[in-house]
Protein backbone atom coordinates (compact mmCIF):
# COMPACT_ATOMS: atom_id res chain seq x y z
CA UNK A 1 0.00 0.00 0.00
CA UNK A 2 1.32 3.43 -0.86
CA UNK A 3 1.59 6.32 1.55
CA UNK A 4 1.54 9.09 -1.06
CA UNK A 5 -1.21 11.37 -2.12
CA UNK A 6 -4.51 11.16 -0.31
CA UNK A 7 -4.86 10.41 3.35
CA UNK A 8 -4.78 6.80 4.52
CA UNK A 9 -8.03 4.98 3.71
CA UNK A 10 -7.77 2.79 6.80
CA UNK A 11 -9.40 4.30 9.88
CA UNK A 12 -6.81 6.42 11.67
CA UNK A 13 -5.71 5.09 15.06
CA UNK A 14 -6.44 7.10 18.18
CA UNK A 15 -3.38 9.21 18.93
CA UNK A 16 -4.99 11.18 21.74
CA UNK A 17 -2.81 9.80 24.52
CA UNK A 18 0.37 10.30 22.46
CA UNK A 19 -0.68 13.87 21.71
CA UNK A 20 -1.51 14.52 25.33
CA UNK A 21 2.02 13.51 26.22
CA UNK A 22 3.28 16.11 23.70
CA UNK A 23 1.28 18.99 25.11
CA UNK A 24 4.06 20.13 27.42
CA UNK A 25 6.58 20.23 24.57
CA UNK A 26 4.07 21.99 22.34
CA UNK A 27 3.64 24.70 24.91
CA UNK A 28 7.40 25.31 24.97
CA UNK A 29 7.55 25.41 21.16
CA UNK A 30 4.70 27.87 20.83
CA UNK A 31 6.31 30.14 23.43
CA UNK A 32 9.39 30.53 21.19
CA UNK A 33 7.49 32.36 18.45
CA UNK A 34 6.01 35.85 18.29
CA UNK A 35 3.04 34.44 16.44
CA UNK A 36 1.62 31.11 17.43
CA UNK A 37 0.92 30.20 13.80
CA UNK A 38 4.66 30.27 13.11
CA UNK A 39 4.98 27.10 15.21
CA UNK A 40 2.86 25.08 12.76
CA UNK A 41 5.74 23.32 11.00
CA UNK A 42 7.62 22.48 14.19
CA UNK A 43 4.48 21.16 15.85
CA UNK A 44 3.72 18.98 12.85
CA UNK A 45 7.20 17.47 12.95
CA UNK A 46 6.87 16.89 16.67
CA UNK A 47 3.61 15.03 16.24
CA UNK A 48 4.71 13.14 13.14
CA UNK A 49 7.89 11.96 14.87
CA UNK A 50 5.79 10.60 17.72
CA UNK A 51 2.93 9.14 15.69
CA UNK A 52 4.54 8.25 12.37
CA UNK A 53 2.25 10.23 10.13
CA UNK A 54 -0.27 13.05 10.21
CA UNK A 55 -3.94 12.26 10.74
CA UNK A 56 -6.88 14.67 10.92
CA UNK A 57 -6.67 14.32 14.70
CA UNK A 58 -3.08 15.58 14.60
CA UNK A 59 -4.04 18.42 12.28
CA UNK A 60 -6.65 19.49 14.77
CA UNK A 61 -4.19 19.22 17.66
CA UNK A 62 -1.67 21.39 15.80
CA UNK A 63 -4.41 23.84 14.80
CA UNK A 64 -5.38 24.26 18.44
CA UNK A 65 -1.81 24.93 19.57
CA UNK A 66 -0.90 27.16 16.64
CA UNK A 67 -4.19 29.04 16.77
CA UNK A 68 -4.97 28.40 13.10
CA UNK A 69 -7.75 26.40 11.44
CA UNK A 70 -7.50 22.67 10.66
CA UNK A 71 -7.99 23.42 6.96
CA UNK A 72 -4.94 25.71 7.08
CA UNK A 73 -2.86 22.96 8.72
CA UNK A 74 -4.05 20.52 6.07
CA UNK A 75 -2.84 22.94 3.39
CA UNK A 76 0.58 22.95 5.05
CA UNK A 77 0.69 19.16 5.42
CA UNK A 78 -0.15 18.59 1.75
CA UNK A 79 2.27 21.30 0.59
CA UNK A 80 5.43 19.81 2.07
CA UNK A 81 6.71 16.44 0.94
CA UNK A 82 8.17 15.58 4.34
CA UNK A 83 4.80 15.30 6.06
CA UNK A 84 3.08 11.98 5.50
CA UNK A 85 -0.63 11.37 5.57
CA UNK A 86 -0.33 7.58 5.74
CA UNK A 87 2.19 5.28 7.45
CA UNK A 88 5.65 5.01 5.83
CA UNK A 89 8.07 2.10 6.27
CA UNK A 90 10.28 1.74 9.30
CA UNK A 91 13.07 2.94 7.02
CA UNK A 92 11.94 5.70 4.73
CA UNK A 93 14.18 6.14 1.71
CA UNK A 94 14.29 9.49 -0.07
CA UNK A 95 16.16 8.96 -3.32
CA UNK A 96 17.50 11.99 -5.14
CA UNK A 97 16.38 12.33 -8.78
CA UNK A 98 17.81 15.76 -9.56
CA UNK A 99 20.50 16.79 -12.04
CA UNK A 100 23.81 16.04 -10.35
CA UNK A 101 22.68 12.62 -9.18
CA UNK A 102 21.19 11.78 -12.60
CA UNK A 103 24.51 12.70 -14.25
CA UNK A 104 26.16 10.27 -11.86
CA UNK A 105 23.88 7.38 -12.69
CA UNK A 106 21.07 7.70 -10.16
CA UNK A 107 18.42 6.49 -12.62
CA UNK A 108 19.90 3.00 -12.81
CA UNK A 109 20.46 2.95 -9.06
CA UNK A 110 16.86 3.97 -8.39
CA UNK A 111 15.77 1.12 -10.67
CA UNK A 112 17.96 -1.16 -8.62
CA UNK A 113 16.30 -0.05 -5.38
CA UNK A 114 12.84 -0.50 -6.83
CA UNK A 115 13.66 -3.98 -8.09
CA UNK A 116 15.35 -4.97 -4.84
CA UNK A 117 12.45 -3.83 -2.65
CA UNK A 118 9.70 -4.59 -5.14
CA UNK A 119 8.06 -1.21 -4.68
CA UNK A 120 7.58 1.90 -6.80
CA UNK A 121 7.81 5.56 -5.87
CA UNK A 122 5.46 6.13 -2.93
CA UNK A 123 5.35 2.43 -2.07
CA UNK A 124 5.80 0.58 1.19
CA UNK A 125 7.08 -3.03 1.35
CA UNK A 126 4.45 -5.50 2.57
CA UNK A 127 6.39 -6.13 5.78
CA UNK A 128 6.38 -2.40 6.47
CA UNK A 129 10.16 -2.25 6.66
CA UNK A 130 10.95 0.02 3.69
CA UNK A 131 9.24 2.82 1.86
CA UNK A 132 10.54 4.71 -1.16
CA UNK A 133 10.14 8.31 -2.20
CA UNK A 134 11.71 9.94 -5.25
CA UNK A 135 13.02 13.24 -4.01
CA UNK A 136 14.13 16.55 -5.43
CA UNK A 137 17.69 17.72 -4.73
CA UNK A 138 18.92 16.66 -1.29
CA UNK A 139 21.59 19.37 -1.37
CA UNK A 140 24.63 17.12 -1.43
CA UNK A 141 25.51 17.37 -5.13
CA UNK A 142 29.24 17.03 -4.48
CA UNK A 143 28.52 13.57 -3.08
CA UNK A 144 26.16 12.45 -5.87
CA UNK A 145 24.40 10.06 -6.21
CA UNK A 146 22.71 10.49 -2.88
CA UNK A 147 19.87 8.95 -0.89
CA UNK A 148 18.53 9.55 2.56
CA UNK A 149 17.38 6.72 4.81
CA UNK A 150 15.53 8.01 7.82
CA UNK A 151 17.68 10.93 8.98
CA UNK A 152 20.96 9.57 7.55
CA UNK A 153 22.57 10.61 4.27
CA UNK A 154 24.30 8.01 2.10
CA UNK A 155 26.47 9.34 -0.69
CA UNK A 156 28.53 8.23 -3.71
CA UNK A 157 26.18 5.34 -4.08
CA UNK A 158 26.76 2.19 -6.10
CA UNK A 159 24.49 -0.83 -6.41
CA UNK A 160 26.77 -2.73 -4.06
CA UNK A 161 26.81 0.05 -1.52
CA UNK A 162 23.03 0.30 -1.62
CA UNK A 163 22.71 -3.44 -1.03
CA UNK A 164 25.04 -3.21 1.92
CA UNK A 165 23.17 -0.26 3.45
CA UNK A 166 19.68 -1.65 2.99
CA UNK A 167 20.58 -5.20 4.02
CA UNK A 168 22.27 -3.85 7.13
CA UNK A 169 19.07 -2.27 8.39
CA UNK A 170 17.05 -4.03 11.03
Amino acid sequence: MGYKGKACDKPAPDFSSKLKALDAQAELIVAKYDQKSAATLTLLHLAQDACGYVTPEIEQWVARWADVTPVHVHGVVTFYSMYHQAPVGRHHIRFCTTTSCVLNGSEDLLGHVKKKLGIQNGGVTPDGKYSLEESECLCACDQAPVMQVGDDYHSQLTAKKIDRILDGLK
Binding site: A7, T69, P70, V71, H74, T78, F79
Partner: peptide, 27 residues
Amino acid sequence: TDEITKTHEFGIFNRGDVSELDVYPGM
Protein backbone atom coordinates in the same frame (compact mmCIF):
# COMPACT_ATOMS: atom_id res chain seq x y z
CA THR B 1 -15.08 31.23 4.26
CA ASP B 2 -12.17 32.39 6.42
CA GLU B 3 -13.04 36.06 6.75
CA ILE B 4 -16.77 36.50 6.18
CA THR B 5 -18.48 33.33 7.39
CA LYS B 6 -15.50 32.21 9.50
CA THR B 7 -16.51 28.62 8.82
CA HIS B 8 -13.15 27.62 7.27
CA GLU B 9 -14.33 24.96 4.82
CA PHE B 10 -12.09 25.73 1.84
CA GLY B 11 -8.36 25.33 1.48
CA ILE B 12 -5.76 24.98 -1.24
CA PHE B 13 -3.96 21.68 -0.91
CA ASN B 14 -0.78 20.23 -2.44
CA ARG B 15 1.85 22.23 -4.25
CA GLY B 16 2.91 23.57 -7.62
CA ASP B 17 0.94 22.54 -10.68
CA VAL B 18 -0.96 19.88 -8.72
CA SER B 19 -2.31 22.42 -6.21
CA GLU B 20 -6.02 22.09 -5.91
CA LEU B 21 -8.91 23.76 -4.23
CA ASP B 22 -11.03 21.57 -1.97
CA VAL B 23 -12.99 21.49 1.24
CA TYR B 24 -11.32 20.10 4.34
CA PRO B 25 -11.52 16.29 4.15
CA GLY B 26 -14.77 15.11 5.69
CA MET B 27 -16.22 18.62 5.74
